[in-house]
């Protein structure tokens, strides 16, 4: 089974990468983009078929390693 963990900056945390993209897009004439925020997508191929086990393990991994709770949050999608 496949799983995707998405890590994104918490609301209110300044995202200099997102700002740079947003400013560049505005300069290039793409109007109406109020904000851009950059996150990470981490894909897992798992041996298990047990969704709840996978979710438990991945949320532990995301909490301990993939996301820094001071500035980031995460969500898990199982496929």
């Amino acid at each position: 089974m496949k799983a995707v963990v998405t890590v994104e900056l918490k609301e209110g945390v300044l995202d200099p990468q997102g700002q740079a993209i947003q400013q560049l897009l505005a300069q290039r004439g793409y109007s109406g983009i109020d904000e851009v925020r950059v996150g990470k997508r981490i894909e897992f191929s798992l041996a298990t078929l047990d969704g709840s086990r996978a979710e438990t393990m991945l949320s532990e991994i995301a909490d301990k390693l993939l996301a820094n709770p001071v500035i980031e949050r995460f969500h898990i999608d199982l496929k």
Partner: peptide
């Protein structure tokens, strides 16, 4: 030290990238 929680806060990408 910040990542382990021995110090509070986090060090993000420099403002000028």
């Amino acid at each position: 030290l910040c990542e382990t929680g021995l110090l509070p806060g986090a060090l993000m990408l420099n403002k000028n990238l």
